[in-house]
Design a protein around this nucleic acid. Structure first.
Lengths: 204, 204
DNA sequence: CTAGCACCCTAACAATCGTTAGGCTACTGT
DNA sequence: ACAGTAGCCTAACGATTGTTAGGGTGCTAG
C-alpha cells in the first residue's frame, strides 16, 4: 500500500546516499545540499521525507540498531557455552557491520553526535543492554578458564568492540570476516590443554 | 631563546586543546570559537599563532608524523628478524599512539580532510613510505613461515593498522599496550613447531 | 472530471562559519 | 626614555549552514 514497487522509492535512496556520505566525511561535514546533489534533488526537497538532519541520521542508525538487537536477542535466548556465545556475538556484530557498514561507521565515528541527539535514546538504551550481554559472556568465559585471566571483562569487551568496529572501514580489501574472527579469538582464548590450534577454526 | 620557560607558552596550549577537541568531535564540527573558549581567549586571537584552521590541524599532525617517522627510520636501519621487526613496528606505532593520541585520532578519523589539505603532502608521503615498510616486513615474515599464509601482506597490514589505530580511543581503560600486542601477535603468528605459546610472550 | 495529496521546485530566512581589520596593552632592546 | 612588537581584544565581513514559505506538477481515489 504505502510504497509501491514500481514507483522509485526515493526515501530509501536518500537514506542510502546520506549514510554513505555521513560515513565517509562525517555528519557535521556533510551538508544537506551535498546529500541532495547525490540524490539528484534539491536540498529543500529532503525535508519532504525527513523533518530535519538529525532525524535523517537517526533513521539510518535505528535501521542498523533494529538488526543487531534482533541478533543479540536470539543469542541471549539460546543456551550456549560461553565461548560459543562469544563467537556468535562476534559473528553477529560482523554480520551487522556487513549489512549496515555505513551506519556502524557513523555510530562509532560521530559518537558525540549520537550521545547528544534526543532521537536516539532507544538506540543508546539498546547499546547499554548489549554491553551488559558482552560483559556477562566474557566473565563466564574467564570463569570457565577459556579466556586468559590477564584480561578484565570490561576492558576486553571494549578492545574487541573497537577491533571489530575498525574493520567496518576495511571494505572487501582482502580481509574476510573469517580472518577477523580468527585473529580475535585466537589472540584472546586460553591455549587448549591439548595444544595445537587454540580453539575452533573456520570451516574452510 | 625563542620561548622562555617562565612565560606561559600559549601556542602549545592551543595545540593541545584543539587537538583534544578535534579528536573528540571532529575537525569540521569543532569551531575556532570553541577552541578559543577552551584556551581562554578570543577566536580572532588564534590567528596570531596560526594562519588558518587548516594550518592548526597540520601543525598537530606534523608533530606526530615527525615522531613516528623517527621511530620507523630507526627500525628500518636496524638488522632484525622479520617477526622481531614486526613487533618493533607494532610497539612503535602504539608508542606513537600513546604520545600523540589525539593526533592519531584526527588522522584516522578525518581522513577526507587529511587527503585534501595542501599542507600535509609531506605527511602523506611519509605514510606511503611507512606502508611500504610494513608490507615488506609482513611479506618477509610470511616467506619465513612465521605468519599464516591465509593472510595477504596488504590486507594484513591494513587489518593490523586499523586494530592498532582503534585502540587510540581506549584511554587507560584497563587495556595495556602489552595486552594489545599480545592479542595481535598471537592471532597472526603461525604456531611454533614446539607447540605451547604461539611465539614470544610479553616480559611479565 | 475533479479534489487532494505526494513530490519536488525556487527563493529566502536567521544563525553561524572561518577570517580580516584595526586598535589597545605590556613588555623588550637600545 | 622611547620605539617596536608580541599578544590579545572588539567589531565586522562575506560565505555557507540548516531550515522554512509558498507554489507548481502529476498521479490517484471517488
Amino acid at each position: 500500500m504505502s510504497q509501491g514497487t514500481g514507483r522509485a522509492n526515493k526515501r530509501d535512496a536518500v537514506l542510502r546516499e546520506s549514510a554513505r556520505l555521513f560515513a565517509e566525511r562525517g555528519v557535521e561535514a556533510t551538508t544537506m545540499r551535498v546529500i541532495a546533489d547525490a540524490c539528484g534533488m534539491q536540498a529543500a526537497s529532503l525535508y519532504h521525507h525527513f523533518a530535519s538532519k538529525d532525524e535523517l541520521v537517526a533513521a539510518i542508525l535505528v535501521r542498523s540498531d533494529a538488526h543487531i538487537t534482533g541478533l543479540y536477542d536470539a543469542i541471549r535466548d539460546a543456551s550456549l557455552e560461553p565461548v560459543d556465545r562469544l563467537e556468535a556475538m562476534i559473528r553477529a556484530t560482523l554480520d551487522n557491520l556487513g549489512h549496515y557498514r555505513d551506519a556502524a561507521r557513523i555510530y562509532y565515528r560521530d559518537r558525540a553526535h549520537v550521545a547528544a541527539s534526543p532521537l536516539l535514546t532507544q538506540v543508546r538504551d539498546h547499546a547499554v543492554a548489549h554491553d551488559e550481554l558482552w560483559d556477562r559472556t566474557i566473565d563466564a568465559a574467564i570463569t570457565a578458564g577459556r579466556i586468559s585471566p590477564r584480561f578484565a571483562a570490561t576492558g576486553l569487551r571494549r578492545l574487541l568492540q573497537e577491533l571489530m568496529w575498525s574493520t567496518a572501514r576495511l571494505r572487501g580489501d582482502a580481509v574476510s570476516a573469517d580472518d577477523i574472527v580468527h585473529v580475535l579469538l585466537r589472540g584472546v582464548l586460553a591455549p587448549e590443554p591439548g595444544c595445537g590450534e587454540p580453539a575452533r577454526r573456520p570451516e574452510s
